[in-house]
Simulated scan of single mutants.
Amino acid sequence: MRTLVAAGAALLISLPLAACSAEDTLVIHSENGDHSFKVEVVDTPETRAKGLMYVQELADDAGMLFDFKESRPVSFWMMNTYIPLDMLFIEADGTVLNIHSNARPHDRTSIPSDGPVQYVLEIPGGVATKLGIEAGDTVEHERIAQ
């Protein structure tokens, strides 16, 4: 399965990501305030497979929102990803279920959600800790039902 995902991602590298996604504002409501991010939304198997692979830099207020269109356990890995990432696993109602901080570039270790989620937000590594974002915080975005 991983080989198939990697092969699909390799085929997609020539496609502009903007053609497969939309950029929106996402807000995380935490105990110490609200934190806004400009995110690209990916919601097809092809765009989710590519994710942030091959991206060389990401602004502190930027990220990618993965929409799986249903709640289910998910897992990620960092193959062909060049920058460290924080992964926020988000339930259908916008509650952050768990956070994996500073995922290591090129690591093939599986990074799972702690249960069913509909969304995953990837932001630059270390930003969640820096901003005080924690499990239990809520996420506001036009795709997320509140």
Rank of each mutant, 00 (worst) to 15 (best):
F66C: 02
H100C: 11
P105K: 09
N102G: 12
L97R: 15
H106V: 04
S101L: 10
E70D: 08
P105F: 09
V74F: 02
W77L: 08
N80I: 06
M79Q: 14
D86K: 11
H106E: 13
R72W: 00
F76I: 10
M79W: 12
D86E: 07
F68M: 05
R104N: 08
F89D: 00
S71K: 04
S101K: 10
T95K: 11
F66A: 02
V96W: 04
P105E: 02
F76L: 12
F66Q: 09
M78H: 02
A103M: 10
S71C: 09
W77A: 11
P84Y: 04
T95M: 06
N102T: 11
F76G: 03
E91G: 09
L97C: 10
L88D: 00
T95I: 11
R104S: 11
L65C: 09
A92N: 14
D93T: 04
S75E: 13
L85F: 06
N80C: 02
D93P: 03
N98L: 01
S75C: 12
L65G: 04
T81F: 10
S71Y: 02
H106T: 11
N98W: 04
N80H: 13
L85C: 07
S101P: 10
L65A: 01
G94R: 01
S71I: 09
P84D: 01
M78N: 06
L65Y: 03
D93C: 01
D67A: 05
L97Q: 13
D67Q: 06
R104W: 06
E91H: 12
L88A: 08
I99D: 00
I90R: 06
H106F: 14
L88Y: 00
N102D: 13
R104K: 15
F89W: 04
P73Y: 00
H106Q: 13
I83E: 03
T95L: 08
F76S: 00
P73L: 00
P73R: 06
L65M: 08
H106L: 15
V96E: 00
V96D: 03
F76K: 00
H100G: 02
Y82Q: 14
R104H: 10
R72Q: 14
A103N: 03
F89Q: 03
F66M: 01
M78R: 04
S75V: 08
G94C: 07
V74L: 13
F76H: 04
I99N: 08
D67K: 05
K69R: 15
H100N: 13
E70K: 15
W77Q: 08
R104V: 15
